[in-house]
Design a binder for these strands. Structure first.
Lengths: 232, 232
DNA sequence: ATAGTTATTTGCGCCAGCGCAAAGACAGAT
DNA sequence: ATCTGTCTTTGCGCTGGCGCAAATAACTAT
């Protein structure tokens, strides 16, 4: 896998970096390949690298002391992950990054990134802006988890996923998502069983079509209606 | 209320600002006084100011479209709030800030802050570091809400509040917190009724003592035990 | 094909927590 | 001292969602 500096421009935080800086980033990083279900790093590992996904898909997980886990975010190509730990010196990753399918990521040395951020205020500002969007998204999801019922949370999660990763497959065929029931449960703070029952019901209603590790959204508008939950 | 530049050094993000910068900050800001239950800003307002609380206590709320609300954070003196909106140009506040008691805050013009951040990389870096702590806290609370039972979440919330705002009142008398049952419910994603029942039970057990808008922690260690929930 | 592995579905019983309603407690104002 | 508004408590019934268990379906490797 060869990565050029023009590829790196797809990373929001590097959009305003100079070509020299991009070259330097490439020089101070390595590509790591991870097979399906493999890990880029674990919660608690010392945060020596910041990653940019270049191929595949991954998820960011947080585990409770008892071992239950929630999914914080799905990572798509050219998105950064592990940046939180990388900003502060001697930090550890607050979450685990696991590949959903065979994936590759550029691993940039944390120390190098810190130096870069110090020298280039535009990169620093863009990274900060990215962080504000994370905070807002987490706040919104927190509110959702606290105030909304499972139906609405799941509808919202599917809508969000459709917007991020949805491939409009052959026309009329709907938006296809590749996630297991367990994955969706971890994203919405519920259980595998409840998701299975809910998706079955939605399939009966004709809103979606399901398969093994696959959900195809046929009627996005109906999901939006459920997410908004006008009646109580 | 007169604020000196040395007061401002208590603000984490301004610790490494120069005296000149601090003077400039004061020159570009005004003090706003808000009575109990009053608002500094509402979710959706255009984010023209970033605030630093100088006196009193406030909470940051996020409301659902149906009007239910959750508390995202309790704000104590010399903490910043409304910073998220202030970083990006033409943003709106993602949450509402309401005073828990008569409070004053320094309102700093967003545009001025943006300029300051651009000029002083240390401030920018410290602000970014502060944001990483918010993200981590929100992620941790999200996980907690998704995986833990009410008892544990409430115990955790009280422990957190005790650490932040707890006054060790007269020795042996425990740590006193001033929050209504409704406040605690909004912090933990549950209801007024459940909090009331739970606190009554804990009072019977002797862990806490309660009153109108008051919770006194007598046995912090027992709360920690509940929060950790070793048995299922 | 066949066997083994992993993902999904569904019946069933259960209970944590919700939320109404009404009573009680507390604090401030007149 | 009494009134008024707000906060808190508690009985009661209910239900959304959990989670076990067992069957079934779908994919993988031999």
């Amino acid at each position: 896998m060869n990565i050029s500096s023009s590829d790196l421009k797809q990373v929001i935080v590097f959009q305003r970096a100079t070509d020299e800086e991009l070259q330097l980033i490439l020089k101070n990083s390595i590509v790591r390949m991870v097979e399906e279900n493999g890990f880029f790093f674990f919660q608690g590992d010392s945060a020596n690298y910041l990653y940019v996904l270049v191929r595949g898909r991954a998820k960011l997980l947080q585990a409770s002391p008892q071992g239950q886990q929630v999914s914080l975010r799905i990572i798509h190509p050219w998105q950064m992950f592990g940046a939180l730990g990388a900003v502060r010196q001697e930090a550890t990753y607050p979450a685990t990054a696991q590949a959903l399918e065979e994936s590759s990521a550029l691993a940039i040395e944390s120390g190098f990134l810190r130096a870069l951020v110090e020298k280039n205020p535009r990169i620093s500002f863009d990274l900060m802006t990215l962080m504000t969007t994370y905070i807002q998204e987490m706040q919104a999801r927190y509110r959702e988890l606290a105030t909304e019922r499972v139906e609405q949370r799941v509808a919202n999660a599917l809508i969000r996923l459709a917007g991020q990763s949805g491939l409009k497959s052959s026309k009329e065929a709907g938006i296809e998502l590749s996630f297991s029931r367990q994955d969706v449960a971890e994203m919405t703070g519920t259980t595998l069983y409840t998701i299975s029952r809910l998706l079955s019901e939605w399939e009966r209603q004709g809103y979606i079509e399901t398969g093994r590790e696959r959900i195809t959204i046929l009627k996005p508008h109906d999901l939006v209606r459920i997410a908004e939950n006008l009646e109580k």
